[in-house]
Amino acid sequence: MRIEVQEAPFDFAAEVARFEAGLAGMGAVVTFTGIVRDHAQGGLQVMEIEHYPGMTAQAIEKIAGEALARWDLGDVLVIHRYGLLTPGERIMMVATAAPHRADAFAAADFLMDYLKSRAPFWKKEITERGADWVAAKDADEAALDRWT
């Protein structure tokens, strides 16, 4: 398991290559990348991501640990950024490796649902009209019920 919480951008291709290079006997790697998306109406200038430095990495480790216990996985990688990001930039990525694809897909899906609502990050959108916090969606909370 590798968890990185960082301000700096990451090189997705290099991270995937490094993740794959550490594997043995794994037939499937699934990756997910989250990207800063402009509003449908446009105008997003910056997304600011705040986090809880003392808690963030250990909260993600706990979520990844649950995935490792639940599915037959070889490894898990999570990289999540904080700070100021512009539209089109990568916010985060998840990679899962498993002997077979069903476990890799399910674990990546689980990790994303939990990272969304249980890792201590808060997004603020800065537009020409001002700045406002992104509200958590009821659907994101409801998504966790799939796993209980």
Partner: peptide, 26 residues
């Protein structure tokens, strides 16, 4: 102490309490 909990959680021995809105990671 950096673990999510409920509002009825006891504070005996706690060193750090944090309050925040619902999280929006990912």
């Amino acid at each position: 102490d950096q673990e999510l909990t409920d509002f009825d959680a006891p504070l005996a021995g706690a060193r750090e309490v944090a309050f925040f809105p619902p999280m929006t990671g990912g």
